[in-house]
Nucleic acid binder design. Structure first.
Lengths: 234, 234
DNA sequence: GCACCGCCTTGATCGAGATCAAGGCTTTGT
DNA sequence: ACAAAGCCTTGATCTCGATCAAGGCGGTGC
């Protein structure tokens, strides 16, 4: 993924030894000697929120921040098909064209590998294919979970499921958790197949029912995870 | 996947040399010498339509027939999250539990490998991981296409998309194609997030509009692929 | 051939969520 | 501090697809 519109890229070549995504990330697969120099071909990017990422065949590790993936219909209707958090991978190997758009929701740090490099690495490093296979299967499970939600859940079940499952990797505590939503209401709607109005209404209902607390627009705390789970439908 | 309910299994151990799924299938990855004997561990199953397949960790090639994958909500609502045709793979490596149910829609022939075997093969055969990675990525693209359809398309767009994209691997001709639907109306509904009534109504509308012809319940021919594409929304 | 049963079609009505619109709250820039 | 723009909430109304229900068709078994 490359930067598409406005956004200066601090193009810092990085040796993977120092890469934060080493654990669980692409670089984590690069243990063998022949790859040390390949790893030098990686580069670091800082990308501001809102930037659209062009698919140039490169493959990246997300080091920090949140990215949304969307599919668009011809008349502009939009569906978010997934989110990426650290240390996820971004990109679609084995394919030149990809009908999916990636956009940074927050400031994002990426560790990128060019198409050429990543393809050579894929050939030479079985461990890399293994990591990528596990990652793809995890994303497939996710996608299918949300297919069931999109096709069969009510608006309130969708919102409850979103709050429980799409928080990103983080802060789970006993029976109360609190976090900053990385998305605005329009994104919640585009992810759940709803309109902004319905998404907002359902959040309000959860608030008046005492299931969640909405501190400010972006900050939510779950007052009762158990009661939220009851409302998920699955 | 193993057979779950009623269904005699003709358990014929097969050497992969004779496996129809060799091309593009699991066996196609097994070229190296050390795997010839592993391949002997594969077995062939004949499964009648309607059978539910239990997830026992085995991994199978579909040699013929159609399988549906479903996710279920607690109150019985159901969503079909994918179909498998030959030479697809069936199963979920790297995971003991899988919240997805597989059921044969037609008579199905499988070439199965036990969990132990498939894990050993996965370790020893980079080519296998490569095949599985490509397969997983293809399924992920599919799942995301249908996420957008489920979340944002109208009933008639969903049905049009289904006719064009879920025919299974087959008979594309110039501007007219004809085929047997492997599914009943209830499955179309469960796949598209609709009710049987709506699915049937939309098919009727396409018929009266002259876009398709419904010979009998299971046999449909597309009179105008172009006009069907216009109605897909993407 | 005839009866039965499962699947499909079609109609009438209802309701969840979309649409349209007004106003309030936050953030940002000057 | 003030103004302006963006985002969010909430209300009123409408619509698409769900629900409920009544037949029709086609395959299967006797």
């Amino acid at each position: 993924m490359a930067i598409k519109q406005g956004a200066q890229q601090a193009d810092i070549p990085t040796i993977c030894e120092s890469c934060e995504a080493r654990q669980g990330g692409l670089c984590g697969a690069l243990e063998t000697g022949q790859l040390v120099n390949l790893a030098k071909a990686s580069s670091r990017h800082e990308i501001p929120g809102g930037t659209e990422l062009a698919d140039d065949g490169a493959y990246s590790n997300v080091l920090s921040g949140v990215i949304k993936l969307t599919r668009n219909l011809s008349d502009g209707r939009q569906q978010i098909v997934g989110f990426h958090f650290a240390p996820d991978f971004l990109g679609r190997p084995f394919k030149a064209q990809w009908p999916i758009t990636a956009r940074a929701l927050t400031k994002v740090t990426l560790c990128s590998f060019s198409k050429t490099i990543i393809e050579r690495m894929m050939e030479e490093t079985p461990a890399l294919r293994r990591v990528l296979l596990k990652h793809a299967l995890k994303q497939l499970d996710e996608a299918r979970y949300w297919m069931a939600a999109l096709g069969r859940k009510t608006a309130s079940e969708k919102v409850a499921s979103f709050l429980l499952r799409n928080i990103g990797p983080g802060n789970h505590s006993a029976n109360s958790m609190s976090f900053d939503l990385p998305v605005k209401r329009a994104d919640i709607a585009d992810f759940l197949g709803l309109t902004i109005g319905t998404a907002s209404r359902e959040l309000s209902k959860l608030r008046t029912d005492g299931v969640i607390r909405i501190a400010n627009r972006r900050h939510i705390s779950l007052e009762s995870v158990a009661r939220l789970e009851e409302r998920c439908g699955d």
